[in-house]
């Protein structure tokens, strides 16, 4: 399985601009990207992102143990977007340094719990978790109907210039 993620340069820049803004107390910002699937049923599925929804400052919970904990209203809003858009939801955050990023143990423990909620309202969509650094990414994708995630091979930024950001590919 070789899952590729794609988004336009305009969308990528919008995401970066938002996630790199400082928050009054949260160490990291979170947002949701929405995506449609391509090459469904093949060994090379494509996740094409269409839109980004940032989170308002008030949607963060002040938790010294977590870089970015968000409240249930933020998650419900993302679920509503899945319904309204007919698209999958990807939780995303960013590490503002170069090199291959890694989900923290807390991320690994907590973030996958979002997926069943997204799958319940968008069973035909791919959902996932996306972590970007300046030049690499880590992305877990749950294909429709799947209880297990696959690591995305790469995310491509489509625009001027092109960027082929490596993920699980070597």
């Amino acid at each position: 399985m070789n899952v590729r993620l794609r988004l336009t340069r305009q969308l990528y820049d919008q995401v970066r601009r938002d996630l790199l803004r400082p928050h009054p107390f949260a160490a990291e910002r979170v947002g949701f990207l929405f995506a449609r699937l391509g090459n469904v049923g093949t060994a090379a599925p494509l996740v094409c992102f269409t839109a980004y929804r940032p989170l308002a400052d008030e949607r963060y919970i002040d938790d010294p143990h977590s870089g970015a904990r968000i409240d249930s209203q933020a998650i419900r809003a993302a679920m509503q977007q899945v319904i309204d858009r007919g698209e999958g939801a990807f939780h995303m955050h960013m590490h503002a340094w170069p090199g291959k990023p890694h989900f923290s143990p807390m991320d690994r423990n907590e973030l996958p719990r979002l997926i069943p909620s997204f799958q319940a309202v968008g069973p035909g969509c791919a959902h996932g978790l996306l972590l970007l650094s300046h030049d690499a990414c880590a992305a877990e994708v749950w294909l429709p109907g799947s209880k297990r995630s696959v690591e995305a091979a790469r995310i491509s930024v489509v625009g001027f210039p092109m960027q082929l950001i490596p993920g699980g590919e070597t």
């Binding site: 336009t8 995506a35 449609r36 391509g38 090459n39 469904v40 094409c48 269409t50």
Partner: peptide
């Protein structure tokens, strides 16, 4: 821009 991926 939203007409991406496999046609629905």
């Amino acid at each position: 821009p939203d007409q991406v991926g496999d046609p629905l």
